[in-house]
C-alpha cells in the first residue's frame, strides 16, 4: 500500500512531530501515522507553562497545532490509522495498521503513553459517570461539588489546581506522605484553600450506582479504612507506554518502555524510539521534542549509510 517511504514515524505527539519536521527538512519521504489527531497527551493540557519560548504559557491544543503546521509545512505526510504491529527483520520494515500495511527502510516509534488505571472495583463501570482521566475535559461537570484527585505528580496537581475553578473542594489522595510534583505546583496547591490532602492513602474502590457517590479509602500506614463522599474522581497516577504490540519485537524495560541508547537507537538497525515511550524519558514536551530531533538525525545517518 502506498509508495515505499524512507521513514515511517509512529505517533504524532511532540516527539513524532519534531522527528517529522527534521525528516521532512532533510527531504526524506516520510509518513507519520497517528491514531487520532496530532498532539498526543498535550491536547489535554490546559496550559503548558514549561516549554521554552512561551513565557505566558500556551494551551496544549494550540501548541500541538503549531507543531503540526510546522512539520507539514516542509512536506511531512500524516495518515490516521491505528498501528497493530511492526516487522523489523531485514532492510525493509513493515508497519501493520487498521488501514493496511506501510513499508519503509527506517522507523521511529514515538507512540507515547496513556494514563494508568487504578485497577480498583468501580473504576471501569463508572468511567464517564464521575470517573475521569482528563480534568480539562470534565472539570466543568462538577461545579460546586466535592471531587477527588488521585496521585501526587505534576498531572495530579495541575488537575487539582484546574479543578478548583469549578469544585467547592478538591481532595488530593496520595499514597505517600510527600509529592513528586515540581515545587512550583506544590507551592500553588498548598496555597489554594479549596485543596485538601489525604496522605498515605489509597483508593480501595469507587462506589455508586449510576454515578460516583463515594470512595473507599485505606491509610497504608494504619490500614484504617474510611469513606469519602465525592461526586467525581480524577485519576492521575502515572502513564504507561503504548508498547503492547512491541513485546518480543524490541527490547523493553520491565515496565514496558523501549530501551534505547543516547542516539535513540533500539538495537535493531534502522529502528528508533523517541519521547515518553522510551525508557528513562523525563516525559516533558521539551525532552520529547529533543528525542524526536535526535531520532530523526540518527535515522537520516542510517539511511545514507545503507
Amino acid at each position: 500500500m502506498g509508495d515505499p517511504y524512507e521513514l515511517i514515524i509512529i505517533g504524532g505527539g511532540p516527539a513524532g512531530l519534531s522527528a517529522g519536521m527534521y525528516a521532512a527538512r532533510s527531504r526524506l519521504p516520510t509518513l507519520l501515522i497517528e491514531r487520532a489527531m496530532p498532539g498526543g497527551q498535550i491536547v489535554n493540557a490546559e496550559l503548558v507553562e514549561n516549554y521554552p519560548g512561551f513565557p505566558e504559557g500556551i494551551s496544549g491544543a494550540e501548541l500541538a497545532s503549531l507543531m503540526e503546521r510546522q512539520a507539514t509545512k516542509y512536506g511531512l505526510e500524516i495518515s490516521v490509522a491505528e498501528v497493530d504491529g511492526i516487522e523489523v527483520a531485514g532492510e525493509q520494515k513493515t508497519v501493520r495498521t487498521s488501514e493496511g500495511q506501510y513499508h519503509a527502510k527506517a522507523l521511529i516509534i514515538a507512540g507515547g503513553s496513556e494514563h494508568s488505571k487504578l485497577g480498583v472495583p468501580g473504576e471501569e463501570e463508572l468511567r464517564g459517570r464521575g470517573v475521569s482521566y482528563c480534568a480539562t475535559c470534565d472539570g466543568a461537570f462538577f461545579r460546586d461539588q466535592v471531587i477527588a484527585v488521585v496521585g501526587g505528580g505534576n498531572i495530579a496537581l495541575s488537575d487539582a489546581l484546574f479543578l478548583t475553578r469549578f469544585a467547592s473542594k478538591v481532595v488530593v489522595i496520595h499514597r505517600r506522605d510527600q509529592l513528586r510534583a515540581t515545587r512550583i505546583l506544590q507551592e500553588r496547591a498548598f496555597a489554594q484553600p479549596k485543596i485538601e490532602f489525604l496522605w498515605d492513602t489509597v483508593v480501595k474502590s469507587i462506589e455508586g450506582n449510576s454515578e460516583v457517590r463515594q470512595l473507599r479509602l485505606m491509610n497504608v500506614k494504619t490500614e484504617a479504612e474510611a469513606l469519602l463522599e465525592v461526586s467525581g474522581v480524577f485519576i492521575a497516577v502515572g502513564l504507561r507506554p503504548n508498547t503492547g504490540y512491541l513485546e518480543g519485537v524490541l527490547a523493553l524495560s520491565p515496565e514496558g518502555f523501549i530501551l534505547v541508547n543516547e542516539q535513540m537507537e533500539t538495537g535493531v538497525p534502522g529502528v528508533y524510539a523517541a519521547g515518553d515511550i522510551r525508557a528513562g524519558s523525563p516525559r516533558q514536551v521539551s525532552s520529547a521534542v529533543g528525542d524526536g530531533a535526535t531520532a530523526a538525525i540518527s535515522a537520516e545517518r542510517y539511511l545514507s549509510s545503507i
Binding site: 487520532a36 489527531m37 498532539g39 491536547v43 493540557a45 482528563c134 480539562t136 475535559c137 466543568a140
Partner: peptide, 14 residues
C-alpha cells in the same frame, strides 16, 4: 462536546 475540551477537537474530524 464543548469548545474547551482538547480531545473533543481531536475526535470531531473522525
Amino acid at each position: 462536546w464543548a469548545p474547551w475540551c482538547g480531545p473533543c477537537r481531536a475526535i470531531a474530524p473522525i
